[in-house]
C-alpha cells in the first residue's frame, strides 16, 4: 500500500494535467492580486509617507484581510478561481484515473497487488493532488497581497463593507483574530480542492467520456447555483444560507450567509458519494 501510494503520488505531482490545473489557478490568483494592488495598493505608500491618508479611519477596509483572493469581491480573476476550482482540481488526476481504467493499466496493477490497495492509494493521491492544486495558488496570492497591503485588523462596525456578517462562518474570528480566520479558510478551500478532485474521479465511474466526467463537477455547480438563485428569489433574505461550495468557499459573503453546518454537510455528502462510488463501483466490480 505504501509503495503503491508513493507511485501514485509521484504520478500525480509529475503529470502535465496537474501542472495545467496548477498554472491555471495560479494565474487567476496572481491576476487577482495584481488587480487588488492596483486598486488599493496606494494606501501602503501613503501610510509609509505618513500623509493624511494614513489617518483615514476607513483604512481597515483596505487591509490584507479584505484584499486576498478569498475576500476581494471585485475582480474577474477571483470569480474564475472559485468557479473553475472544480475543473482545476479534478483535471490532474481524475483524468489519469479514467484513462488507466480505459487503457487496461489497472489490470496490470491488480495482478501484482491488491485491487483495494490500488483504489485506496489512487483515491488518496487524487485527494492530495486536488488539495495541492488549490493550496499553492492561495499561498502565492497571500504572499503577494500581504507583501503590499497593510495588516489592519478588521473593524466590526464595518461588517457591511467587509461583508463578513455576524453569524457567518468563523465571523467572530475574523474580527478578533483575522490571521486564524484566513488560515481556516485556506484550509477549507484546500479540503474542498481535494473533495472536488475525488468527486471528478467518482463521476468517471458513471460517465465513460473522460472530458464529460472531469467537467461535470463544474457544470453541476453551475446548475445548483442557478437553482439556488431561482429559489432564493422567493425567500426572506435573512433565511437564505449559501449551499453552493464555489460560493461559500469565498471568505466574505457573496450572495448569502455561509453556515458551518452546511459547509460540513456538503463536504460529507461529496465524500460519502465519492467513497461509495469508488468502493462499490471500483473495488467491488470485476475489472476484466
Amino acid at each position: 500500500m505504501k509503495k503503491q501510494l508513493k507511485i501514485e503520488l509521484k504520478k500525480a505531482i509529475f503529470s502535465p494535467y496537474f501542472l495545467f490545473g496548477l498554472v491555471m489557478l495560479t494565474l487567476f490568483s496572481v491576476l487577482s492580486a495584481i488587480y487588488i494592488l492596483e486598486k488599493n495598493g496606494g494606501y501602503t505608500a501613503a501610510i509609509k509617507a505618513d500623509t493624511e491618508y494614513a489617518y483615514n479611519p476607513d483604512l481597515p477596509l483596505f487591509s490584507f484581510f479584505s484584499s486576498w483572493i478569498g475576500a476581494e469581491r471585485m475582480s474577474l480573476a477571483y470569480t474564475l478561481f472559485f468557479n473553475l476550482m472544480p475543473i482545476g482540481t479534478a483535471l490532474p488526476f481524475a483524468w489519469s484515473f479514467c484513462s488507466e481504467r480505459k487503457s487496461g493499466y489497472i489490470k496490470n496493477i491488480v495482478i501484482r497487488d491488491n485491487k483495494k490497495n490500488y483504489y485506496k492509494a489512487k483515491t488518496i493521491a487524487i485527494f492530495v493532488s486536488g488539495m495541492i492544486v488549490v493550496l499553492i495558488p492561495l499561498l502565492i496570492n497571500i504572499l503577494i497581497v500581504s507583501s503590499k497591503m497593510p495588516l489592519y485588523k478588521p473593524f466590526a462596525g464595518y461588517n457591511f463593507y467587509n461583508c463578513v456578517y455576524f453569524g457567518d462562518l468563523f465571523a467572530d474570528l475574523y474580527y478578533s483574530n483575522p490571521g486564524i480566520y484566513v488560515s481556516l479558510y485556506v484550509a477549507l478551500n484546500t479540503l474542498y480542492g481535494g473533495l472536488f478532485a475525488v468527486l471528478g474521479a467518482a463521476f468517471s465511474f458513471y460517465i465513460s467520456n473522460i472530458f464529460s466526467a472531469v467537467l461535470l463537477p463544474f457544470v453541476i455547480m453551475l446548475i445548483l447555483a442557478y437553482t439556488e438563485h431561482a429559489f432564493q428569489a422567493y425567500m426572506f433574505a435573512g433565511d437564505i444560507v449559501e449551499l453552493i461550495p464555489t460560493q461559500f468557499l469565498h471568505a466574505s459573503t457573496l450572495y448569502a450567509n455561509s453556515s458551518g453546518i452546511v459547509v460540513a454537510a456538503v463536504a460529507i455528502i461529496i465524500l460519502t458519494f465519492s467513497f461509495f462510488t469508488i468502493y462499490f463501483k471500483g473495488v467491488k466490480n470485476e475489472i476484466y
Binding site: R73, V219, L222, Y255
Partner: peptide, 25 residues
C-alpha cells in the same frame, strides 16, 4: 465596487455553457 459583487446571470451562463459542454468532445 468592494461591497457589490457581480450578480452572475446563472441562467444565461448555463444556457450558453451547457451547449458548449455537450458539443465539446
Amino acid at each position: 465596487k468592494p461591497d457589490e459583487p457581480i450578480q452572475i446571470p446563472y441562467l444565461w451562463l448555463l444556457l450558453n455553457l451547457l451547449v458548449c459542454y455537450f458539443n465539446v468532445h
